[in-house]
Write a protein that binds this DNA or RNA. Structure first.
Length: 489
RNA sequence: CGGGGCGUAGCGCAGCCCGGUUAGCGCAUCUGCUUUGGGAGCAGAGGGUCGCAGGUUCGAAUCCUGCCGCCCCGACCA
C-alpha cells in the first residue's frame, strides 16, 4: 500500500478517488465505466442493505425478483419513460457467438433476436407488465414489492460509486387503489430514506420535491433527499416517485373497485443505490482516509498488538481474548490484527485509512499496568484506559462517535447554506460552493437559464421551506417558496 | 459526437524530438539479517511481445502509415 492520499484541498476529486481505491472499497474493471466492488466496500454495502431491508419489511414490503432483460416493446410503452432512458440503454441483439474462418470468435449474425432486449435501466415496465396479471380486484391491492438488483445505464462519464454504468440498488414498486394511498407510500418511503441517511449514515439530508424538469421519467411527482458533500456540492441520496396512473395506463392495469367500477391502478416507485457509498465517503472522510459511522462499519474496533517477540505476542493474545469475549456480549464487531508481516505503525495508518471507528493498541507496558490505549477515528483523540470495563466505554463511545460525526456534518451544512435574494448574490455563493435557498418563478426556462449560467440546479423544493412572499431572483416574478439550489453530483 | 492527451514491469513514470549494441527509475514483490508504542533499515534477487499490424533502415521503444484501447475537457445524464 502506498503512503498517503491527496488532500481535499489539493484536489477534491482525486482525494475521493484515492479513498475509494486505497481503502480497498472498489476499483475500475476491464469494462469501461463498470467497477469491481471489493470485499471491504461490499461489506459496507451489505450493512446498508441489511438495515434498509429491515426497514422495508417493517413497513410491510416483500422482496421479489424480476428479469434483467426487458423486451423493447414493453420498454417503449410509456412515452416519457422512453424519452428519459433511451439514450443510455444497453441492448441485446444476438444470442450466439461462432468461430469464423480466421478462427476468431464473432457474433453469429444468424442468431439475431427477433425482438431486441433492453438491459434494465430500471424495472417499472417489466414489473407493470407483470402486475397486469396479478391485479384484478381491489382485494389484490396494495402490492408492496421491493427488488434488490443491478441495473445498467450507459453513462458517458463515470466515477466510482457516484455514477457507474452498472450499479446495485433496490427499487420498490407499489400498486394502490387510490391516489392518496400511493402518495402516502411515496412520502413514507422518502421518510425511511431520510431516517436511514441521518441515523445510520450520520448524514443530514433535506427532504423535498423535485422541479418538473428534474422529475423521474414517467412520474407525476419526484421526492428526494439531498445531502451536502464536503466540497459544498449536493448529492441526491434517494428518490421516491409518485407515478400516478401512467404505468397502469401504459400496461392496461385495471382493477374493479369495491363499488364495482373499473379503475386504473395508482403507483409509486422508490430507490437508493450504491451511490450511497459515495455519499458516505464524501460526507465524513478526511485527509487520513475513510471515516465510517459505527452503525455501518464492518469492523467497529480494531486491536493492534505491540510486541518484540513471540512470548509477548502470546501474552497479549490471551489478554485480547478476554477483551473480545466481552465485546461479543455487547454486540460490538472487532478485528484482532495479529499479522506478523506488518509493523504497528503500518497497521495504525491502514486502519485509519479504512475508517475503523475505534482502535485499541496493547503492548507489554499495558499488560503490566492493566491498561490499553484507545484511539478514536473521528477526532484522532488517544487515551489510556483500564482494561477492566473497557467494553462499556467502547459501547458508549461508539454511540458518541455516531452522534459526533452527524453533528459535524450538520454543522458543516449549516455553515454552507445561504439565502440569496438577488441573482448576483446567488452567483457569488454558487461560485464558492454551498446550498442556496432562493426564490424562483417556477418555470423551466428560468431554471435552465440558471443552470446554463451558474451550473447550479434546483435540488428540490424543501418541505420545510416556509411560505413567504418573494420575487424570483432572475425574473422578479412572484414566488411563494424558496427552492434549494446547488451544484450537484 | 467535437477538442486535447496518453499507451514502456503489478502501479506511477523517464527515454522518443536527434534511431545504435545489456531499455532505465520510484513504489510494490521475493530472500536474508537487524527491527517492531505511528507508514522500518541495509544487502541482494526476480519481473518487459516498449498497445497491435505494416513500412523505412545494416539496425526501430525512438522515424512513417494504418488500426485498437484508455484518460481528460465539452456535450449528455438518475
Amino acid at each position: 500500500m502506498s503512503k498517503g492520499i491527496t488532500s481535499r484541498q489539493e484536489d477534491y476529486s482525486k482525494w475521493y478517488n484515492d479513498i475509494v481505491v486505497k481503502a480497498d472499497l472498489a476499483e475500475n474493471s476491464g469494462v469501461r465505466g463498470s467497477m469491481v466492488i471489493k470485499p471491504y466496500g461490499y461489506a459496507i454495502w451489505e450493512k446498508m442493505k441489511e438495515q434498509l431491508d429491515k426497514m422495508f419489511k417493517e413497513t410491510g414490503h416483500q422482496n421479489a425478483y424480476f428479469p434483467l432483460f426487458i423486451p423493447k416493446s414493453y420498454f417503449t410503452k410509456e412515452a416519457s419513460h422512453v424519452d428519459g432512458f433511451a439514450k443510455e440503454c444497453a441492448v441485446v441483439t444476438h444470442y450466439r457467438l461462432k468461430t469464423n474462418q480466421k478462427g476468431e470468435i464473432v457474433v453469429d449474425e444468424n442468431a439475431k433476436l427477433e425482438e431486441e432486449l433492453i438491459v434494465r435501466p430500471t424495472s417499472e415496465t417489466i414489473i407493470w407488465s407483470t402486475y397486469k396479471k396479478w391485479i384484478h380486484s381491489y382485494r389484490d391491492l396494495p402490492i408492496l414489492i421491493n427488488q434488490w438488483a443491478n441495473v445498467v445505464r450507459w453513462e458517458m462519464r463515470t466515477r466510482l460509486f457516484l455514477r457507474t454504468s452498472e450499479f446495485l440498488w433496490q427499487e420498490g414498486h407499489t400498486a394502490h387503489a387510490t391516489a392518496e394511498e400511493a402518495i402516502a407510500e411515496t412520502k413514507q418511503m422518502l421518510d425511511i430514506y431520510a431516517e436511514f441517511a441521518e441515523k445510520w449514515m450520520a448524514m443530514p439530508v433535506i427532504k423535498g420535491s423535485k422541479s418538473e424538469s428534474e422529475r423521474f421519467a414517467g412520474a407525476l411527482d419526484t421526492l428526494s433527499i439531498e445531502a451536502m458533500m464536503q466540497d459544498g456540492k449536493a448529492l441526491q441520496a434517494g428518490t421516491s416517485h409518485f407515478l400516478g396512473q401512467n404505468f397502469a395506463k401504459a400496461f392496461e392495469v385495471k382493477f374493479t373497485s369495491k363499488e364495482g367500477n373499473e379503475e386504473y391502478v395508482w403507483a409509486s416507485s422508490w430507490g437508493v443505490s450504491t451511490r450511497l457509498m459515495g455519499a458516505l465517503i464524501m460526507a465524513h472522510s478526511d485527509d487520513k482516509g475513510l471515516v465510517l459511522p459505527p452503525k455501518l462499519a464492518p469492523i467497529q474496533v480494531v486491536i493492534v498488538p505491540i510486541y518484540k517477540n513471540e512470548d509477548q505476542l502470546e501474552t497479549i493474545r490471551i489478554k485480547v481474548k478476554e477483551i473480545t469475549e466481552k465485546l461479543k456480549t455487547k454486540d460490538i464487531s472487532f478485528k484482532f490484527d495479529d499479522r506478523t508481516t506488518q509493523r504497528p505503525g503500518f497497521k495504525f495508518a491502514e486502519w485509519e485509512l479504512k475508517g475503523v471507528p475505534i482502535r485499541l493498541a496493547i503492548g507489554p507496558r499495558d499488560i503490566e499496568n492493566g491498561t490499553i490505549e484507545l484511539a478514536r477515528r473521528d477526532t484522532s483523540e488517544k487515551k489510556i484506559y483500564n482494561i477492566e470495563g473497557i467494553e462499556n466505554i467502547i459501547k458508549d463511545l461508539l454511540h458518541e462517535i455516531q452522534d459526533n460525526i452527524f453533528k459535524k456534518a450538520l454543522k458543516f451544512r449549516k455553515e454552507n447554506t445561504f439565502k440569496a435574494d438577488t441573482y448576483d448574490e446567488f452567483k457569488k455563493i454558487i461560485e464558492k460552493g454551498g446550498f442556496v435557498l432562493a426564490h424562483w418563478d417556477g418555470t423551466a426556462e428560468t431554471e435552465e437559464k440558471i443552470q446554463q449560467e451558474t451550473k447550479a440546479t434546483i435540488r428540490n423544493i424543501p418541505f420545510d421551506s416556509p411560505e413567504e412572499e418573494g420575487k424570483c431572483i432572475v425574473t422578479g416574478k412572484p414566488s411563494k417558496r424558496r427552492a434549494l439550489f446547488a451544484k450537484a453530483y
